[in-house]
Simulated assay, not measured.
Amino acid sequence: MSNKEQQIGGLDGFILVTASKKKRRTTQNFKCPFNIHLKNHESKKPSEESCDLGITAFLQNFKKIEENLIASDFFKEIVNLIEPLLNQAKIEAIICLGLGKLSECLISCYQLALIRCLKGKLKDFSGKIQFFDPIFTYKDIEILQLLDTAVLSENLEGKYLADQKTLFYLPHCPKQISNNLLWRNWQPELLKNVYLICNSFENIILGNPERVLNDNATYILKAEKFCKEIKFLNNFRYTDIFNDFSLHYFDTSTFFTDPGLSVEPEYKIADLELITRKIQTNLKLKNGYN
Rank of each mutant, 00 (worst) to 15 (best):
N80P: 00
N80M: 13
N80V: 09
L81V: 02
L81M: 13
I82L: 12
E83Y: 08
E83D: 14
P84M: 14
L85I: 15
L86N: 01
L86V: 07
L86G: 03
L86S: 02
L86T: 02
N87G: 09
N87R: 11
Q88C: 12
Q88T: 14
Q88H: 14
A89G: 11
A89P: 02
A89C: 11
K90C: 06
K90F: 00
I91R: 05
I91H: 04
E92G: 00
E92Q: 13
E92T: 00
E92F: 03
A93R: 14
A93D: 11
A93Q: 12
I94D: 01
I95M: 10
I95T: 11
C96P: 03
C96Y: 00
C96E: 08
C96G: 07
C96V: 11
L97P: 00
L97S: 06
L97N: 09
L97Q: 06
L97W: 03
L97F: 12
G98K: 03
G98D: 02
L99Q: 05
L99F: 06
L99I: 10
G100M: 05
K101T: 09
K101H: 09
K101Y: 00
K101E: 02
L102E: 02
L102N: 00
L102F: 04
E104D: 12
E104G: 01
C105I: 07
C105H: 10
C105F: 09
L106E: 02
L106K: 04
I107R: 03
I107C: 11
I107P: 01
I107A: 15
S108K: 04
S108L: 06
S108M: 05
S108F: 01
C109K: 09
C109H: 01
C109L: 11
C109F: 01
Y110S: 08
L112K: 08
L112I: 10
L112M: 10
L112V: 08
L112C: 10
L112H: 10
A113K: 02
A113V: 02
A113I: 04
A113D: 04
L114I: 09
L114M: 13
L114D: 00
L114K: 03
I115V: 13
I115F: 03
I115N: 06
R116L: 15
R116D: 08
R116Y: 07
C117N: 12
C117E: 14
C117S: 15
C117F: 02
C117M: 11
C117Q: 13
L118E: 08
L118R: 03
K119L: 09
G120F: 08
G120I: 07
L122A: 06
L122V: 05
L122T: 01
K123F: 12
K123I: 13
K123C: 12
K123S: 14
D124F: 14
D124W: 09
D124H: 15
F125V: 05
F125L: 08
F125T: 00
S126A: 11
S126Y: 14
S126F: 14
S126C: 09
